[in-house]
């Protein structure tokens, strides 16, 4: 390790000397110088402790700046946007649910109306039927009475006819009986003849 560092220092001195002395290639000399500067510490730039202070300082500055940006501006804003969106979504869902409830209500109302209409229609049908029935009944009743009246009249006429016929028959049979009796030579007692005819006719 000690020899190594010794070698490194002698080497860089040698390069410097060589670069100063020969000045063969300007571009190469510059690259070599840069290289020499980088290799002044250990070979890995990550282990070059001379740059640690610089990196840590700028890192802290960066982190503080990022923290301020985030906590002052970015995060509250994004949180607000997300909350607002959440609110909007919740509202929209509520509105949608409202509308859905309304739709359900409307459907119920429609169904109700439909059912009402059906009931009314059947009522109307029933009423119409009842009306017609009543009318029919009335007509039948009227017809019945008329028929009854007519038949009564007819019967009366028949009875009259029968009565007249019976009377006529009585008279005729009385007359015939009187005539018969007269023609047989006896005198017909009107009273006896009538009684006999009446008895006969009854019998």
């Amino acid at each position: 390790m000690a020899t190594e560092t010794h070698e490194a220092t002698t080497h860089s001195a040698a390069t410097d000397g060589a670069a100063a002395a020969t000045t063969h290639d300007a571009g190469h000399a510059a690259a070599d110088a840069a290289h020499g500067a980088a290799d002044a510490g250990p070979g890995m730039p990550q282990l070059d402790f001379s740059t640690f202070g610089n990196q840590i300082f700028w890192l802290l500055v960066t982190l503080v700046v990022i923290y301020i940006i985030l906590s002052r501006f970015a995060l509250p804003r994004i949180a607000a946007v997300l909350a607002e969106r959440q609110g909007t979504i919740t509202n929209d869902i509520a509105a949608a649910e409202d509308l859905k409830a309304k739709a359900v209500e409307a459907e119920a109302a429609y169904n109700q109306a439909l059912a009402d209409a059906r009931v009314e229609a059947s009522n109307i049908v029933a009423a119409a039927k009842a009306d017609i029935q009543a009318e029919l009944d009335q007509a039948i009743a009227k017809a019945d009475t008329e028929i009854a009246a007519k038949s009564a009249e007819g019967e009366k006429a028949i009875a009259e006819i029968r009565a007249t016929a019976t009377a006529a028959v009585k008279t005729v049979s009385k007359d015939v009986a009187k005539e018969l009796i007269t023609s047989m030579g006896a005198t017909a007692d009107a009273k006896t003849v009538t009684a006999a005819v009446t008895a006969r006719m009854k019998g």
């Binding site: 890192l59 960066t62 700046v65 970015a74 994004i78 946007v81």
Partner: peptide
């Protein structure tokens, strides 16, 4: 590191400046 800050700023501050839903 400055470019990193600018990137973060662009994404989280400029990107959200409209606060769009």
């Amino acid at each position: 590191m400055g470019i990193t800050i600018l990137g973060i700023f662009a994404l989280l501050v400029l990107g959200t400046r409209r606060r769009a839903v």
